[in-house]
Amino acid sequence: YHADPSLVSFLTGLGCPNCIEYFTSQGLQSIYHLQNLTIEDLGALKIPEQYRMTIWRGLQDLK
C-alpha cells in the first residue's frame, strides 16, 4: 500500500514518519481513514507507545 501525501505530511509533521507503515500495512492510506481512531485503536495497530498520544492529539486537532 502507498500512503497518501496527506498521511505522510501529517505523520512527518508530528515527528512520526516511521509510523507510516503501521497504518498503510492495515490499509489505512489517508488521513481520512485515521480521523475516527481512538487511542485504543492506535494500540491495536501496534503503534509504538511513545507515539500514540502524539498521533492521537494530532488527530483531535484535525477535528
Rank of each mutant, 00 (worst) to 15 (best):
P5T: 15
Y1C: 05
I47T: 02
F23C: 03
I47Q: 00
Q60I: 12
L37G: 02
L34C: 08
T24W: 04
Q50V: 12
A44W: 07
H33K: 14
K63L: 03
D61A: 05
L37S: 05
E49K: 10
L28W: 05
Q29Y: 08
R57Q: 09
S6T: 08
L7Q: 00
L42M: 07
G15F: 02
T54S: 09
Y32I: 14
N36T: 09
S25K: 13
L37C: 07
F23N: 01
K46D: 05
L37E: 01
D41A: 07
T24Q: 07
L62I: 09
S6Q: 13
T12F: 07
G43L: 12
I31F: 03
T12D: 15
E21S: 10
S25G: 12
A44Q: 12
E40N: 06
K46F: 05
K46T: 06
G13N: 15
Y51L: 06
L42V: 06
L14S: 02
L59F: 08
R57H: 11
L62K: 03
L14D: 00
L7V: 08
R57P: 01
L45M: 12
L42C: 02
Y51M: 04
E49G: 06
M53R: 12
L28I: 09
G15V: 01
D4Y: 15
Q26K: 12
T38I: 03
P17W: 05
N36L: 08
L11K: 01
P17V: 11
I31K: 06
Y32E: 14
R52V: 09
G15N: 11
H2D: 07
T54D: 10
K63G: 10
S25A: 12
E49W: 08
G58W: 00
L45A: 04
G13C: 05
F10K: 00
S6C: 12
Q50W: 05
Y22C: 05
L59W: 04
L37R: 04
M53E: 13
G15I: 00
W56K: 06
P5R: 14
L34P: 01
H33T: 11
N18W: 04
L14K: 05
Y51W: 09
C19K: 01
Y32D: 12
I55C: 02
L37F: 12
N18G: 13
E21P: 08
G13I: 05
M53Q: 13
S25N: 11
G13H: 14
D61I: 11
S9W: 02
N18S: 06
S25W: 03
L37T: 09
Q60H: 03
H2Y: 09
G15C: 04
P48T: 03
P48C: 02
T38R: 08
Y32N: 14
G15Q: 06
A3K: 15
M53F: 06
T12H: 11
E40R: 08
C16Q: 02
Q26W: 03
E49R: 12
Y22N: 11
L11S: 00
T38Q: 10
L11F: 09
Q60G: 09
P48I: 05
S9E: 10
A44I: 04
S30G: 07
Q29R: 08
P5K: 15
P17G: 10
G58P: 02
L11N: 00
L11G: 00
G27V: 01
L37Q: 02
I47K: 00
Y1V: 15
T54F: 03
P48Q: 04
N36E: 14
Q29L: 13
T12Q: 12
S30Q: 14
Q50Y: 03
Q60Y: 13
G27M: 01
Q29G: 10
F23T: 00
D61F: 02
E40H: 10
D41M: 04
R52A: 07
Y51N: 05
L59K: 02
Q60W: 08
L34E: 01
L11Y: 02
E21L: 05
S9H: 03
E49V: 11
K46L: 07
C19V: 13
S25C: 11
C16T: 05
H33P: 06
W56L: 12
E21D: 11
F23W: 00
E21C: 04
A3C: 15
I47D: 02
L11M: 06
P17C: 07
M53T: 11
F23E: 00
I20G: 03
N18L: 05
E49L: 09
Q50E: 13
C19R: 00
I39V: 11
P48A: 07
W56R: 05
T24N: 04
C19A: 09
L34F: 03
S6K: 07
E21H: 07
Q60S: 12
I31H: 05
L14H: 04
G43H: 15
H2F: 15
F10N: 01
L11R: 00
Y22Q: 10
C19P: 00
N18R: 06
F23H: 01
T24R: 07
G27I: 01
Y32F: 13
D41Y: 02
E40Q: 06
T24G: 04
L7I: 10
T12A: 11
G15L: 01
P17L: 12
L28P: 03
T54L: 10
A44K: 13
T12R: 13
Q29F: 10
H2W: 14
M53Y: 03
G27E: 10
K63R: 05
Y51R: 05
V8Q: 12
Q29D: 14
G15H: 03
Y1Q: 04
G27F: 00
S30W: 01
H33E: 11
L45T: 07
V8G: 15
P48R: 02
A44D: 15
H2E: 13
G27H: 10
E40V: 06
D41F: 01
E21R: 10
A44S: 13
I55R: 01
T24M: 12
G27C: 02
H2N: 15
S30N: 12
S9P: 05
L62A: 06
T24F: 04
W56Q: 12
K46A: 07
S6I: 03
F23I: 03
R57K: 10
F10T: 01
Y32M: 08
S30R: 09
M53P: 08
A3Q: 15
A3T: 15
M53S: 11
L62Y: 11
E21F: 12
S25T: 15
E49S: 08
Q26H: 12
V8P: 11
C19W: 02
G13P: 04
G43T: 11
Q60M: 12
Y32G: 14
Q26T: 07
D61R: 08
A3F: 15
L11T: 01
L34V: 12
L45C: 10
L62R: 10
Y22A: 09
L59Q: 02
N36C: 02
G15P: 01
G13A: 10
H33M: 07
V8I: 08
N18V: 08
